[in-house]
Amino acid sequence: MPDLFAYEFIRNAVLASLFASVACGIIGSYVVVKKIGFISGGIAHTAFGGIGLGYYLGINPLFGVIPFSLAAAIAIGLLSRKAKVAEDTAIGAFWAVGMAVGVILIGLTPGYAPNLFSYLFGNILTVSVADLWMIAVLDILIAALTWLFSKEFLALSFDEEYAEVSGVKTTRFYLLLLCLIALTVVILVRVAGIVLVIALLTIPAAIARVFSSTLRGMMGLATVLSALFCLGGLWLSWQLDLASGATIIMLAGIAFLLVHSGRSFISFLKAR
């Protein structure tokens, strides 16, 4: 194993896994306790339009994803709050339209679209040093904002009406939370890809919730779990010659299944 670290792309992959896990643990916990998994999936998929935009403009597709996913987060958030459209309808529409925009823009780009598959399903072994810097900066931004507004986000997640009555600008903080989800998606695209990020946003936090008594503890545990899944999945994919993103998600999925079936089994035994 140590000789693996001689390769720069392995070092980058490990660092990217660790950075991504921090954002995953913090933001994933909010996604799980506020039950906004579907809206997060919508933001992630809409972000594919940003990948297309990046290809079309000939820039790093991740730079296309940042504005696109932020715009998607705000648009979905406002539409579901203010317009008389059912939330899941708004999300579903954005989900598909965002991906359609991506497909059209990639089609309009002359020539072959390299690495397209890696943006859809992740390829952590292709993370560059420039990507790493961007991931690190986004990580710090996400951690700082959630620390600054921790009591507002907590009140928003637990009892939004009470937060509103207490003078918290709930719509503003909700949109900010969706924007932070969008930025986490940007970080996770490299690790798991647009299609698979939602699993990393929900599974580590969902497992952590079972064992945590505070939101902060849940975030910490979710970060550790996420790092275990990413590094474990990376190692397995290397050993078995499988796609890294999909292997990471499979590992997380199996852990999720084991924890929850184990829990049901224990409560079944207790009930007898």
């Binding site: 009591k151 637990f158 009470y162 207490s166 079972v210 008594s213 939101l215």
Partner: peptide, 25 residues
């Protein structure tokens, strides 16, 4: 209050939320 029964929050944390109106962001 309809809330997630598994929300990782203590009774004291809930009472503490009553202070939010007196705090700046």
């Amino acid at each position: 209050l309809f809330f997630d029964r598994e929300f990782p929050l203590s009774v004291r944390d809930v009472a503490l939320m009553g202070r939010i109106a007196l705090k700046t962001p």
